[in-house]
Design a protein around this nucleic acid. Structure first.
Lengths: 338, 338
DNA sequence: AGCTGGCACTCCTCCGCGGAGAGTGCCAGG
DNA sequence: CCTGGCACTCTCCGCGGAGGAGTGCCAGCT
């Protein structure tokens, strides 16, 4: 177990390194933080911290930098979440309040988060899996051609074309629309399949083919679109990454474009509280020198999607976590209002 | 006026520089291209080309690199559009054919274009301005709350919430829905305002407030959403930019996130043919060392939106133009089918 | 025990220098 | 108008030494 002072030293190292981006030495530490001990003592502590794997030196006789393990300890034990200042909070609210639709909410959130944290922001669209149905609409575009429109409680809209095996009458269509809605409105997407299963039986044999086609498309939409969507912003902040540029930034940009990777990352994170994944904890080559701070957000008490930021492992964790948490809360409020 | 051979020299310089990314000298030129003259002659030609502003040297006694003006001449007079190979064409078609909805089409197009050109791809969503209305739907979510759904001929869907001043009956709503659709379906968005102007007059005074609210929202949607949307991809290709990295790439990433900038750029370009904007022709600080190759695409003979790529001025223009043109054609086909 | 000051050592970083090489401009001759 | 030759200019690269920051260790002090 590490003594109190050694933890203090680790905290000081993390803070200084995050600030200066340069390996920090024993002398600088004692000067900037009043540790009440001499550099020599700090050196001993640093040697111990290095033995435990919390810090490392890039080369002999250089200062120390935190390892992933060091950041982990810092985040878990040494750092709190820094609340935003009230002007910042007000700015968030003002900025998000102007949103007109879901796309706009997500877009504004991404820009806001990127600006606040000066890092890459990632916002997941509210998931269909955890959403409920607000309305299902069927539109006859042509005698044997329908459009299915699915509206979720979070304002997301999905549409699909349906080619019917046979023309369908307007009254039958109205009937189907009514029955469909009475069964699924307010229900979770996962419940829908079992709820509509026996619907064709209520109709004439002539129309069953069409009904089945409609249901098939509906279920297909549920499955396909459960694949989540993301919006990403603030990639220009990657340029603040470090000095060894091209090699660092390229794999990160690639990972960001592979939405699958990000979705997996967000998906693995804790459902309720904030999750911080540091460096290799991401289990992804390109993101091994980045940290991901993510949190769920939702209109009610339950999370419908996640948002977060991706930045260098050397980031201001308390500040970033504060911004992420605050933005998630406000987005939740906005969604609840709409 | 430049002699035939000097143009040939310029072409050779552009080709070599694009290939090697290094200033090209007179000796290397005569070796790689059989110009049938000696390096000394080429040097004279190069001096002339430099006087005219087509090429420049980074520093004295280095090779020459093309200027924006040089690339301009190359694109206008010296380079053709390189058609894609038939395997490439087939790959495009296969890749795009799997798309399920508009988002998917745009998403696939972006990835395809980025991969083909190894540059940043930009695809504009089909514009509402030039689209026609396929359907307008009104859904009663609550007695005094409606949702307006607008569907375009390109498959784009927009939705808005409407808070009504007074509850509206189901029959009135159906009547409104029918009248609205009969007037605007198949019409261009720009025509809609004048077509619905007198609609409230056909209804009872009680409902006119609501009808007006609906129309107001509809028109507002038309205006607001005429603001175009973009999808961007392949930003990782920016890392192939050059050596003086951070300073070059940052402003480009920033410009790409400012969708307004890109939209303006695409908007300014020629409506029908392909447009190439080179370096400072973009009239944008951050994009002064990039070129934008763009072209319109559409389901019919008329362009409904633009797509293109953003890359370093030092790019393979013939190949890029070929890819952009080919992709635009296939996307047009896909849209026409759906 | 634990802290401290001192000291020798290591290793990176930052110039400054000089040689090599590539490319140019110019000139005189074909 | 093209060509070969020649002197000149700059950049790039490798080398070496000075400077400096930081470390580890040890002996002494509280």
């Amino acid at each position: 177990m590490l003594s109190e002072r050694r933890l203090e030293v680790l905290r000081a190292i993390v803070q200084d390194y995050v600030g200066t981006e340069e390996p920090v030495g024993s002398k600088a530490l004692t000067e900037r933080h009043n540790l009440r001990v001499s550099p020599a003592t700090v050196r001993n502590d640093m040697a111990a911290l290095e033995d435990e794997g919390y810090i490392a030196q890039p080369h002999t006789s250089a200062g120390r930098i935190p390892t992933d393990k060091g950041y982990r300890l810092f985040v878990d034990k040494l750092a709190g979440v820094k609340p935003l200042s009230s002007p910042e909070r007000r700015a968030i609210q003002n900025f998000l309040d102007g949103a007109v639709d879901l796309d706009d909410v997500v877009g504004r959130t991404v820009r806001l988060l990127a600006q606040l944290t000066r890092q890459v922001a990632v916002v997941q669209y509210p998931s269909l899996t955890r959403s409920t149905v607000r309305h299902v609409e069927l539109l006859a575009l042509a005698p044997a051609r329908l459009m299915l429109v699915l509206i979720t409680d979070t304002g997301r809209v999905e549409q699909r074309m349906i080619d019917c095996p046979a023309p369908i009458g307007e009254t039958v269509l109205a009937d189907l629309r009514a029955r469909l809605n009475s069964r699924v409105v307010g229900q979770r997407f996962t419940e829908v399949p079992s709820l509509v299963q026996d619907l064709p039986e209520a109709f004439d044999a002539d129309d069953r083919g069409t009904i089945s086609a409609v249901l098939a498309t509906l279920l297909e939409t549920l499955v396909e679109e459960t694949e989540e969507r993301l919006m990403i912003g603030g990639t220009a902040n990657l340029t603040r990454f470090g000095h060894d540029f091209p090699l660092t930034i390229r794999p990160v940009l690639e990972a960001l474009e592979e939405q699958v990777v990000l979705l997996k990352l967000l998906g693995e994170s804790n459902d309720s509280g904030m999750t911080v994944r540091i460096g290799h904890e991401n289990h992804h080559e390109g993101l091994s020198s980045t940290s991901v701070v993510s949190v769920g957000y939702g209109s009610g008490d339950e999370a419908v999607a996640k948002l977060g930021v991706v930045g260098p492992t050397r980031m201001d964790y308390p500040g970033t976590m504060g911004a992420v948490r605050a933005v998630a809360r406000y987005v939740g409020q906005i969604l609840a209002e709409s």
